[in-house]
């Protein structure tokens, strides 16, 4: 253990050029499948956003950008946009914080570690409808468990109708999503910790750094690429995730939990205005694109995007 390895290796650079076209073969099967199953439907949907289209009628009329203009001048949709932003930021922030803490905890040595690791991950594997129904029961404002416990402890006198008031409905949904999402970050970050070469830490220790310092200075930066990609994808998924709203609040009370995907679902399947619905989804995709591009720029600045650069 005299020469610690580092990730900043330049030796491989020259040989990389040599591989030529064969490198595309590695990528091709995955690319074909993604383009066929996801890419094509997205393009189709975006094209439909330029039409007035009732899915029950076969005809459609080209209307240009009218759907976009109409949707953007609808105050309910603007409300949905700001709700979506709050929803995404709130959910992902708490998941990252607690997920990171969770990964550190699960990495410790303790009795019954295998079982506890398995148990803490269970919320992640809970189908949305089940999670929604159980939490709805727990959070209920009349016979709910949470209120019962809080009242028994004496923290509150009257039960709080968590999902029935505009001030707490969104937070309640976030609670459910955070519950489901913490294990995702914990697992991904736990895995990221494992692939960090141990001698890096050794090196840090030789420098006399404390354990916590070693974690933040050496382990954390190496986890950063994984943290960033898991986070950006979680942002994208959370923006589109509407199962909880559909079961628990249907976007209410008074639009306080209406997000873009839910609004576009209603527009498509109950109002039968499919073109407007896809326009809403198109706007959401554009906003996400902006977020992702900014994020990727940040990542490449930190060297997380490409190995050794």
């Amino acid at each position: 253990m005299n020469e610690p390895l580092t990730v900043h290796v330049k030796a491989g650079e020259k040989k990389r050029k040599r591989t030529g076209l064969s490198k595309y073969l590695y990528l091709l099967p995955a690319a074909l499948l993604i383009v066929g199953v996801i890419g094509y439907p997205i393009v189709r949907a975006l094209i439909l956003s330029l039409y007035a289209y009732n899915p029950l009628n076969s005809g459609k009329t080209f209307v240009g950008l009218k759907n976009y203009v109409g949707v953007l001048s609808d105050s309910t949709f603007l409300k949905a946009m700001s709700n979506t932003a709050i929803w995404v930021v709130g959910c992902v922030f708490f998941q990252v914080v607690f997920g990171l803490l969770g990964a550190v905890l699960l990495n410790q040595n303790f009795r019954g570690r295998g079982v506890i690791r398995g148990l803490t991950l269970i919320p992640w594997a809970t189908p949305s409808v089940l999670a929604a129904m159980m939490w709805m029961w727990i959070l209920d404002g009349n016979y709910g468990l949470l209120n019962d416990i809080l009242m028994r402890i004496g923290l509150i006198v009257h039960p709080i109708p968590w999902i029935s008031q505009t001030g707490t409905a969104m937070a309640s949904l976030m609670l459910i999503d955070v519950w489901q999402g913490i294990p995702y970050f914990a697992v991904m970050l736990l895995a990221a910790m494992q692939t960090i070469p141990g001698d890096l830490l050794e090196a840090a220790k030789l420098d006399g750094a404390g354990a916590w310092k070693a974690f933040w200075k050496v382990v954390f930066p190496l986890m950063l690429p994984t943290l960033m990609i898991t986070t950006i994808l979680r942002i994208v998924w959370t923006a589109s995730y509407m199962d909880l709203m559909m079961v628990v609040t249907q976007g209410g009370p008074a639009y306080s939990t209406l997000t873009i995907p839910l609004a576009s679902y209603y527009r498509a399947y109950t109002d039968l205005k499919y073109g407007e619905a896809t326009a809403m989804a198109g706007i959401q995709a554009l906003l996400l694109l902006i977020v992702v591009v900014l994020y990727l720029r940040l990542m490449s600045n930190k060297g997380a995007l490409d190995n050794g650069k």
Binding site: P41, V236, S240, A281, L296, L305, N307
Partner: peptide
């Protein structure tokens, strides 16, 4: 490991595949 021109574009295209609410992809799929 390999060098790709426009690698960031490929990588962001991968992410952008997840941008759309899946419910609106069903009809085309």
């Amino acid at each position: 490991r390999h060098h790709y021109r426009g690698k960031p574009v490929i990588l962001s295209l991968l992410i952008s595949s997840q941008f759309f609410p899946t419910i609106l992809l069903v009809l085309a799929l």
